[in-house]
Simulated assay, not measured.
Amino acid sequence: MLRLDKLVKTYKTGDQALKAVELDIPNGQVLALIGPSGAGKSTLIRCINRLVEPTSGEVWLGDTELTRLSPSRLRRERRRMGMIFQEYALVERLTVMENVLSGRLGYVGFWQSLTRRFPQKDVDEAFRLLDRVGLLHMADKRADELSGGQRQRVGICRALIQDPAVLLVDEPTASLDPKTSRQIMRLICELCAERGLAAIINIHDVALAQMFVQRVIGLRLGAVVYDGPPDGLTPDKLTEIYGEEDWEATIDKVDDEDEEAEAIA
């Protein structure tokens, strides 16, 4: 379980990005963070793995309080937190296989990491993951030869090969077309279900979040203003999160997608 207890982030400018956020996220639950730009979504994700240092509060991953760890302990605990980035964060000149195996760098010694010599079990797992996401045939291709959706799948494999306890996902569909966005969201949710992983997904597309996740957290000005199921996002709730807007089109889009999925099934 991942638990946030009164998490606060205040920048030197005095801007408060997070205001006493409290969340409990059980194993296997996929949660979407929604809210306007500047609401604190990316800050929250980065405070969990301390890429951004919280000002106060606690972050617990299982029985470990992450906010009090020394740098060496934090490096070890970060292996349990897989990160998936909006801009993929791949090394363009490396192959797909090499990018996936980079997720194991925290587990191997210095010389092994320098020469990229990984245990055979890691290589086998990388092949298995690439097969699972439909990229086995591209293992030897350079990352700069891939499409956006393919790059994101490599990023997913790189995160999963860490054998994490939680996935932190920062706008995974922002650079993708609608069809590929649905495929990536579906894949993340399926993989979390298969592995019993908790996941927090920062996402701007409300309709996409409603189609796939089990729980939605709405942030506004660093505070949680909604915590509940996707179908609880009424026009009034969406207005509370984002401000005035005609939300009926978004709700109709979700209903249409649900009907389309039922028809395909």
Rank of each mutant, 00 (worst) to 15 (best):
A193F: 02
D227T: 09
L176C: 08
Q183T: 08
A199T: 01
E244P: 08
A209Q: 09
A198N: 02
E244I: 07
Y226D: 02
V216I: 15
L221F: 00
P230H: 07
Q214S: 09
P230I: 02
M211P: 03
G228V: 10
R195T: 04
C192T: 06
L197P: 05
C189R: 14
I203C: 02
R186M: 11
L208F: 04
A249I: 15
L191R: 06
E248N: 13
L191S: 08
Q183K: 06
E245G: 04
L238M: 15
C189W: 02
I203Q: 10
T250A: 15
G232S: 11
T234S: 15
N202G: 11
A207C: 13
Y226G: 06
G232P: 12
I241Y: 05
P229K: 12
D177E: 13
K237H: 11
R195Q: 07
K179T: 08
L238S: 14
R220A: 11
I241A: 12
L176M: 11
E248W: 05
L219M: 11
G218F: 04
N202Q: 07
E244Q: 15
Y242N: 09
C192H: 07
T239R: 08
M211H: 03
K237P: 00
R186K: 14
E244C: 01
I217G: 07
L238N: 15
V224F: 04
D246T: 02
Q214G: 10
W247N: 08
A249E: 15
T250V: 15
G218P: 06
H204M: 07
G218T: 04
D231Q: 13
I217S: 13
P178C: 01
L238Y: 10
P235C: 06
P230G: 03
A198V: 04
R195M: 02
C189D: 05
A199S: 04
D231I: 09
E240F: 00
I201P: 10
A207R: 14
M211W: 03
M185N: 13
M185F: 14
T239H: 03
T250F: 14
G218H: 04
V216F: 07
E240C: 01
L176D: 04
Q183D: 14
G232N: 12
A249D: 15
I184M: 07
E240V: 02
Y242P: 07
P178Q: 09
T234N: 02
L191Q: 11
P230T: 04
E244R: 12
G228K: 13
P178Y: 02
D236Q: 15
E248T: 13
Y226H: 05
Q210C: 14
I200Q: 04
L197Q: 05
D231R: 14
Y226A: 01
H204V: 10
M211Q: 14
Y242H: 13
I201S: 12
V224W: 00
P235S: 04
L219K: 06
L221E: 13
T250E: 06
I188S: 09
Q214Y: 00
R195W: 01
H204P: 09
E190W: 03
G232K: 11
G228S: 02
D231L: 14
V213T: 00
L233F: 09
E190N: 14
A198C: 05
G222C: 13
E248V: 03
C189G: 00
G222W: 06
A198T: 01
S181P: 09
I188Y: 03
